[in-house]
Amino acid sequence: MRKCFLLLLAFHALNAAALPPGARPPPETQDIEAEAVEQTGLLAEDIAWLHHPDYRWKHLQSEHFILHHDQKMFAAKVARMGEQFYDAISADLPRLQDRVSPARSHLFIFRDPRDWKQIVDGTPGLDQWTASFVRGNTMYLQELGTGNSQKMETLAHEMTHLVFNRFLPVRLPLWLNEGLAEYYGEFAYKDARGIGQSKKAAFRPLRKWVPMEELLNATAYPVDPLEVERFYTTGKYLTGFLLLRQPREKWDAFFARLLAGDPALPVLLETYGWNDIGALEKAFTQFVR
């Protein structure tokens, strides 16, 4: 038992090791020097961007994130809202723990479209339509548009990917990964601002959507940029259909089996009692019309 106790101490010591020696509990956000930036969990490509000679990053640290930016006003808002989104999204994963904690995730913020193009061109697997993205434990966020709510909805979308990468032991199918990100993108900022509308009312009739067979079996984004938005929207509507129009216990059972590593499509049909994709399509059509 003594050995167990020592191991327990070591376990707690490791968890406590995220703080520099002698450090006080961090304030909500704080500016940190480049030398103080933790690099745990960063991929080689992320480290290359962090030290890229063309960028003179400033660094802002919050409880779960380190932000690399060139303008503090927006970065501080991203840090504050990012922590709120982290709390809201992780609260919907009550039986899971943050696998990455105490390591922080990194957020690179870009404001110049030319810089963003350089990032997209230099990242395998990205298409030119990419506005922001998450890879592993790192978010690349572009400050796009003029409206605050649009920027924060983008942040909520990407934060969903980041939180899932921290908490989930498995990867979700593409439609569900993007569907949930769109779902939180739609509602997380409004909920945080207390301007939430009825979630069911938010799903207005859809004129066109991606056929279920195509959506559920997709392993890559559509080639045609015009189809990309439809793919995201259909994913959000299907997620909303499952979350809001079906019994919640079915969602819980479906998600639990995904976490156990079961294949998504047969589990979806079996859990919700649809004989085949056609039966799901029929029920979904009633929801979107």
Partner: peptide
């Protein structure tokens, strides 16, 4: 490539990355 080292008491944590892989020693 070594990316981080953490020491707490007599426990060391050492992280390496290679391509898309990350290896952490305790």
């Amino acid at each position: 490539k070594e990316t981080s080292t953490v020491q707490a008491e007599n426990v060391w944590s050492l992280t390496f990355v290679h391509g898309d892989s990350q290896a952490t020693f305790t």
